[in-house]
Amino acid sequence: MNASLLNVVQNIPPDNKTIYYYIKFTGGNLDELITSTDESVKQKQADFIVAGDYTTFIQINNGQMSSAMALLKNRVKMTGNKMKALTITKPIDNYNNCVKGVPTDY
């Protein structure tokens, strides 16, 4: 799988900051991971941009909701090639399952 994804995590408490969370897969391997409060990461021109609230991303990262379900529930907005997005829903879900195992204090 070759694909890059930029998550735009909005409304992070306490002062409603935005964090950009960029991941790039090359040949199925995680090639690049960037977290930043600087929107210059947008210049990476990810294949897909997924934007949503902090609370929604907590649910996604905890494995309580898949990113595709968040899309269906209108909790996140996605831009990019929708048909290609179909091909990566499962790998992204697997990635999120790995992330779930990382102890995190939200």
Partner: peptide, 13 residues
């Protein structure tokens, strides 16, 4: 509006 497979959204925005 979105069209097609990924346009399924059952909750209004």
């Amino acid at each position: 509006a979105e069209q097609g497979l990924l346009s399924l959204s059952l909750i209004p925005s």
